[in-house]
Design a protein around this nucleic acid. Structure first.
Lengths: 133, 133
DNA sequence: ATATAACCAACCAATTTAGTAGGTTTTAAT
DNA sequence: ATTAAAACCTACTAAATTGGTTGGTTATAT
């Protein structure tokens, strides 16, 4: 398993926000109820999306979140890389991974690179708008 | 990360065996030394491959393992699914997963299905022979 | 008899995952 | 001015997974 609940929930929240855009701000309480996800857990996942301006949050009564762009302009891959850290299929391809001393001669390295390339390529080819049906 | 050391090591062992086939039986001690992997850990990973007759092991002095088919006849996907359990990109697509009560309406389900399909398709298109260079 | 190989079972430390608990701060409505 | 509701923040935790280790038993060639 490569994508944990963090990435999956984040994506579902984004789709939910997309489906309710134009209705002003959407409070997470509503999203949590609709998506059957713990509100407290969502609150832990969202900050990274708002810090990178994928969504904007307004505090206080009547506040909530909204998308900052049109759904067509969000690539699923971006949302997942942000919430999951990255989408490498193996540990030795992860960003801060300790350099493997056999990486020059590793017969499987190119397999993992190509797999990672294909995974990212596919997820970048899908947008939030595609997921709205 | 989707493929742990279990699958990665198993694959490297299989490539190693492929590169030394025709030289009789290869003891794991040699493979462990060449691949810089703990022998004891390898011994824990290999049984599933020999139980499914991907390799055959001979005990006793002068014993070791060998491939049971030609390298071209091993799909990388098969080796990984066997050692990793499965290659589902998300928990809700894993074999024994509790059925999600929102799966009919889940807007992201088809994304994960298609991603899983592409991952398995690619890994099944590569054989051990391809990894021998 | 001995060395060497696969095979087997129990344990273990560190990390990750999926949360929970309990707040503080900001803002609109009353 | 008070209150309700929202985002935002920090610390903790139980369970599972990962990546092994320890200590053997069994089988076989020399």
């Amino acid at each position: 398993m490569m994508v944990s609940t963090r990435g999956r929930y984040a994506l579902r929240v984004m789709v939910d926000l997309a489906q309710h855009q134009g209705q002003g701000l959407t409070p997470m309480k509503d999203v949590a109820k609709r998506q059957q996800i713990s509100l407290k857990y969502l609150e832990k996942i969202l900050p990274v999306l708002s810090k990178h301006h994928y969504i904007s949050g307004t505090q206080g009564k009547g506040g909530g979140y909204r998308l900052t762009r049109a759904p067509e302009e969000y690539q699923v891959g971006d949302i997942l890389r942000l919430t999951e850290g990255d989408l490498a299929p193996v540990a030795c391809l992860e960003p801060g991974a300790p350099p493997c001393d056999q990486r020059e001669s590793c017969p499987t390295r190119s397999l993992w690179c190509e797999l990672g390339r294909r995974i990212n390529e596919y997820l970048d080819s899908v947008t939030l708008a595609d997921l709205m049906k």
